[in-house]
């Protein structure tokens, strides 16, 4: 009897130790330093920034975004050419190689939040869901900082 209890405990420990999903890759993504700027009203698009770190052994691909805050969230990239002219365009899918990080930061990649449903108010947060190519998702709470914020520290 005693040994069967021990066996059950042992078995359940094993079970807990196993991955709870068959999705490979995206559960190894760590999201750090997420932040965004407050908006003036809802007519202007917002932007959110963060660092995605792939701690796993397989490449992970970010394919899209979802949030109740904006009807059309998408990853965009700002580029500045040799003449100093900046332009912005959808960045498409973002591949994060194993062991590496991809930063969404001012002047580069950013989560562009088009068609805001509500005003982005300083001090609040909003949920942003990252969709990965393997079917996995990750929802992060993005803090809203002031309009003049320069980074995750404000």
């Amino acid at each position: 009897m005693k040994s069967s209890i021990a066996a059950t405990i042992f078995a359940s420990c094993l079970f807990v130790g196993l991955p709870t999903t068959t999705v490979a890759g995206s559960e190894d993504v760590v999201v750090e330093n997420a932040w965004s700027r407050a908006s003036i009203g809802i007519n202007r698009p917002g932007a959110a920034y963060m660092t995605l770190r792939n701690t796993g052994t397989d490449p992970v691909t970010l394919v899209g975004l979802e949030t109740p805050l904006a009807m059309m969230p998408d990853i965009h990239e700002t580029k500045t050419d040799a003449n100093g002219v900046s332009s912005m365009a959808p960045a498409g899918e973002i591949m994060i190689p194993p062991g590496e990080s991809v930063s969404l930061e001012p002047g580069g990649l950013h989560a562009m939040l088009m068609r805001l449903q509500t005003k982005m108010v300083e001090g609040e947060t909003f949920p942003l869901t990252l969709n990965f190519a393997d079917g996995g998702t990750r929802t992060v709470d993005v803090p809203i900082l002031g309009i003049a914020a320069r980074g995750p520290e404000g």
């Binding site: 698009p45 932007a47 500045t80 001012p106 002047g107 950013h110 914020a149």
Partner: peptide, 17 residues
């Protein structure tokens, strides 16, 4: 332009700094 979500607030906050 003020409808610019990335470059312009960044430039204005850089300049403010």
């Amino acid at each position: 332009f003020t409808y610019c979500p990335d470059v312009c607030p960044t430039t204005l906050s850089d300049i403010s700094g």
